[in-house]
């Protein structure tokens, strides 16, 4: 291992972080140098990018414009690509026809608690599995990996039986506790911790740092980008979680937004899609805001992960 290179990867960017424009320029430069393989490859690259963008963006766009359409304009041929006339009726509808604020509150509670538990447990277990020595460490990690291989849908049945027996249906803990398993976070953070230069951790040990101080003052600050990415992924996942809360809740007492929105769908024999779309847009907003706030760290995290391979 060449030591200077390691130091390089964890270094802070020199003094002031480059301004946004400089960073753009950097990206352009690296892009053009990596796509220097001739016009054919460049075209292929752009086509690929465009296709990917369309696949992601068109449904999103459709949801947003539909949420502003009048009921009669939703099913027309040829498709209408712009709401005409535009109306906010659907938004009004969502918030009055179902107890939207209750669902929203439930979503906040469930996502907040589950994510916090997941992130804390993920970090702590990963820390133990990577940096503390104890007998059976390898086996514990194998179990974690194995848990990662089992799809949620399979454990749902036994979980349901257990939680129902405890009388926890229609309670927050019934929804939250079975969701708080952390195999993914443990795996991700463990690999992040293992990728840190061992000498820094040894230096901290020699400097007399106890396990918690080591984690809090040395290991986590160096793992910040990965931790942010992991947290964001966790929050998004919890926010969108549907199957389990749907099984656990019957009404607005504890059901989160994704479950609540389905009530709109079935209210009157023929679904009125306008309010559904409006509800979906409203449900997306908090995550969008969170993403915008954490965006910089998130992108940094994703590149850092890519570089460390």
């Amino acid at each position: 291992m060449s030591a200077p290179a390691i130091v390089g990867t964890i270094d802070e960017p020199p003094t002031a972080p480059p301004s946004r424009r400089e960073r753009r320029a950097d990206q352009n430069r690296s892009e053009s140098s990596s796509h220097n393989r001739g016009p054919l490859m460049t075209t292929a690259g752009y086509v690929g990018m465009t296709v990917a963008l369309l696949i992601v963006a068109v449904p999103l766009f459709w949801i947003i414009i539909t949420s502003f359409k009048e009921r009669g304009d939703i099913y027309v041929r040829p498709a209408q690509w712009w709401p005409n006339p535009a109306t906010t009726e659907n938004y009004h509808d969502v918030t009055t026809r179902i107890p939207f604020s209750n669902y929203f509150r439930n979503s906040l509670i469930i996502t907040g608690v589950t994510s916090t538990v997941k992130i804390v447990l993920g970090v702590i277990s990963a820390y133990a599995l990577s940096l503390l020595r104890f007998p059976g460490r390898g086996i514990v990690f194998l179990v974690v990996i194995a848990a990662l291989m089992v799809p949620n849908q399979i454990t749902v049945i036994s979980n349901y039986a257990l939680v129902a027996q405890l009388g926890w249906r229609n309670t927050y803990q019934g929804i939250i506790i079975p969701l708080a398993g952390v195999a993914f976070g443990t795996f991700l953070m463990r690999n992040q911790f293992l990728s840190l230069p061992g000498e820094i951790i040894e230096a901290a040990r020699l400097d007399g740092a106890g396990p918690l101080k080591l984690l809090w003052k040395v290991v986590l600050p160096m793992s910040w980008p990965t931790l942010v990415a992991f947290s964001l992924i966790t929050v998004v996942n919890e926010w969108n979680e549907y199957l389990w809360p749907f099984l656990m809740s019957d009404d607005e007492r504890v059901a989160p937004l994704p479950v609540g929105l389905t009530q709109l769908q079935n209210n009157d024999g023929v679904t009125n899609w306008g309010p559904v779309m409006a509800g979906t847009v409203l449900a997306m907003v908090p995550i969008l805001v969170l993403f915008l706030v954490l965006q910089r760290q998130m992108i940094k995290g994703l590149t850092a992960g890519a570089l460390k391979g």
């Binding site: 030591a3 200077p4 390691i6 130091v7 964890i10 270094d11 802070e12 230069p197 000498e199 820094i200 040894e202 230096a203 901290a204 020699l206 003052k217 040395v218 600050p221 160096m222």
Partner: peptide
């Protein structure tokens, strides 16, 4: 015992 590592192993944060 204090150690000076070849890579210096300074805390980057």
């Amino acid at each position: 015992i204090a150690m000076v590592f070849q890579s210096y192993a300074l805390y980057p944060n």
